[in-house]
């Protein structure tokens, strides 16, 4: 397990030292979300209606921005092949890197989301559930994304391909995440939605590391 923590810590330290990636992702999230009121008009009822969806889609796209570098930096400087030698099984190595990605790139988005939700006139209950749904569901984004990142790791311009492959697979988590917030706003039960989200996360947690590891083996060959 010490190898797992060593890798997690190293990736977090690297993310911290190259702080620009995190700030840029946050800035992208804020700007992308800000465009919607400008696009659809400032009417508060409309904004409250589309708010949960906009924030979820915004988080999803921002997450995509950093995913293509998930393994690429390590691939380019030869660290990846050293990591593959072990002793950590490749699947656990994937998990450590995905965890670092989630903490460094997705968690900040979740922390800023309530502020943006206020500007969208979402009621307080909705905001809490939004944060909760993001916390439960967003690991799926990093996990599924890691498969795309592994498949495109050796490609110079893998980002676009990554989006094409991964975005359709994000649809379930988007639907259940937004549904939870909408249920909270209309005072309906939220637990089924959150449980489904949790189910998706657990499923992804089990399956994605294997697919990701298989794709990485392929890339290093």
């Amino acid at each position: 397990m010490s190898a797992f923590y060593a890798l997690l810590k190293r990736d977090l330290r690297l993310a911290y030292r190259q702080g620009s990636a995190v700030t840029l992702t946050l800035a992208f999230f804020i700007i992308a979300v800000t465009l919607f009121p400008l696009g659809v008009g400032p009417e508060l009822a409309v904004l409250a209606r589309i708010g949960p969806g906009v924030l979820w889609v915004g988080a999803l796209l921002s997450c995509l921005l950093t995913l293509d570098r998930l393994y690429q930096a390590d691939y380019e400087d030869g660290t990846l092949e050293q990591l593959m030698k072990g002793p950590l099984p490749l699947e656990l190595m994937v998990l450590a890197k995905v965890a670092a990605h989630w903490i460094s790139s997705v968690l900040p988005l979740i922390l800023i989301a309530p502020v943006l939700a206020i500007t969208f006139n979402i009621v307080a209950d909705g905001i809490w559930v939004l944060v909760l749904s993001l916390l439960i569901g967003s690991p799926v984004l990093s996990l599924i994304g890691s498969i795309g990142a592994a498949l495109t790791v050796a490609m110079r311009r893998g980002g676009v391909l990554l989006s094409l492959m991964i975005l359709p697979l994000y649809i379930p988590v988007l639907i259940f995440g937004v549904a939870a917030v909408e249920a909270a706003i209309s005072l309906l039960a939220i637990s089924p939605h959150l449980m489904l989200l949790g189910g998706l996360t657990l499923g992804a947690l089990v399956l994605c590391p294997f697919a990701s590891a298989a794709a990485l083996r392929l890339a290093v060959e």
Partner: peptide
């Protein structure tokens, strides 16, 4: 191999996507 991984991930997801939609 890459395409095979992608299509297998996709086929696991299809029922989930269908259900969610």
């Amino acid at each position: 191999k890459a395409a095979a991984i992608l299509v297998l991930v996709g086929v696991i997801n299809i029922p989930i996507i269908k259900f969610s939609v």
